[in-house]
Design a protein around this nucleic acid. Structure first.
Lengths: 220, 220
DNA sequence: CGATGTGAATCGTTTCACAGCC
DNA sequence: GGCTGTGAAACGATTCACATCG
């Protein structure tokens, strides 16, 4: 068995920290790509608009990989954070919904640059089934449960209309998916062991609009 | 120190509250559409997985529109929150970048259902310029500043490669844009009076992956 | 010296309890 | 009785200061 080296799981990690870890990884990767060998918490903080103390406190949640007097070795930081985030090896992902958003995702180059790979695409529309979608061919969504189980995928992207989202999310959870990126404007109800990240474009626009209004108020 | 007689305007609203307000609006709209006339803070809270006290506290930031013993009138709540969010009337938006994401956005029906309207689309690629994009025609991005100024738009969606994002963001800010939804994986530096919402798909996937690994989800 | 890791203090948000209104 | 609005308490996250190590 591949040992799960401890990973401090005793303590629950605050949500804001979970959101920042991938940001640190991105900076570290950028520095590594530019040949920078070490980086201080202060540098990391400046790049992200945070304080150096916060950076150190965040990183310590996942183990102390810095050296006093020196800083963090970018190579080491990248390796460790990739492992922490779970992208130290390729992650297979299934995509459900080949509408405008789904299509854009299959064309998006970012996936391969990072460690994610879309291994199957599903849609309900007979018109779309059989069409090429990136490296895949669109499959009938009715085969979703068996395909997901067969592929052993644990991550899914849901890009379907709101009405269909809950039912498909349930199917995915039943088939063993434990992580879901949801583009549908729906508040999915799922078991606690399934992680969900909602990407709701209209909601985001409204939040932006609200911030613009609030800022205007403060300005007066 | 002079007194501020403006009660709400000077008070800064916590970020988490700003994120939740559009959620309340969505629930209220749904209830209104189903003919429900009043709703309690408890009902709103249950629909979103919050506490009733939190809902009340949040809404009070923007004025007290509830009635003790009764609750909130959905009609009133919708009207007020639409105004608060700034979608009580149509909001013109410009879209920069007609790649896979930009194209998906022009096809997305959600915009018109909500109060946003894409009034101009820009790209750099001569191949794409002149092509239809929703109700618009793709314009040369070199005309961006004058077009934005002419249209008087204050909201923009940036769906271009990371390398081009900062320069275009600067142009947009100079042209009077005060709200920006950014799809590029770049940490934009902009004046404080410009609100930015980042939608970074790879970052979101990494945050999802990290949450799947941590699975520290203790009970509610 | 420079920079980390850490516990203590500070800050802000959420929760609670209750007074007041319907 | 039901429900809001509100100040106070509780909680959690961020900042700070410092001991420690390279």
């Amino acid at each position: 068995m591949a040992e799960n080296e401890n990973t401090n799981s005793e303590r629950s990690v605050p949500d804001p920290v979970l959101n920042r870890i991938p940001l640190y990884l991105r900076i570290a990767e950028d520095l590594q790509g530019r040949g920078v060998e070490t980086v201080s918490s202060r540098k990391l903080a400046q790049a992200l608009g945070l304080t150096d103390g916060q950076v150190r406190a965040d990183l310590v949640f996942f183990g102390a990989f810095g050296r006093p007097g020196v800083g963090y070795q970018t190579q080491h930081l990248v390796t460790e954070l990739r492992r922490v985030v779970g992208i130290d090896r390729a992650q297979p992902v299934v995509l459900i919904g080949f509408g405008s958003i789904g299509r854009a995702l299959t064309m998006y180059e970012g996936f391969e640059k990072r460690a994610f790979e879309i291994v199957a695409v599903f849609d309900r529309d007979p018109e779309k089934i059989g069409r090429p979608a990136g490296k895949c061919v669109v499959k009938d969504v009715s085969t979703l449960p068996e395909e997901v189980a067969r592929l052993g995928v644990s991550m899914a992207i849901l890009a379907v209309p709101a009405e269909a989202a809950q039912r498909l999310a349930d199917q995915l959870a039943d088939a063993g998916v434990t992580g879901l990126m949801n583009f549908a404007p729906a508040a999915l109800k799922l078991p606690d062991h399934v992680a969900v990240m909602n990407v709701d474009l209209m909601l985001t626009l409204e939040r932006l609009s609200l911030r613009m209004k609030v800022a205007n108020r403060l300005k007066r």
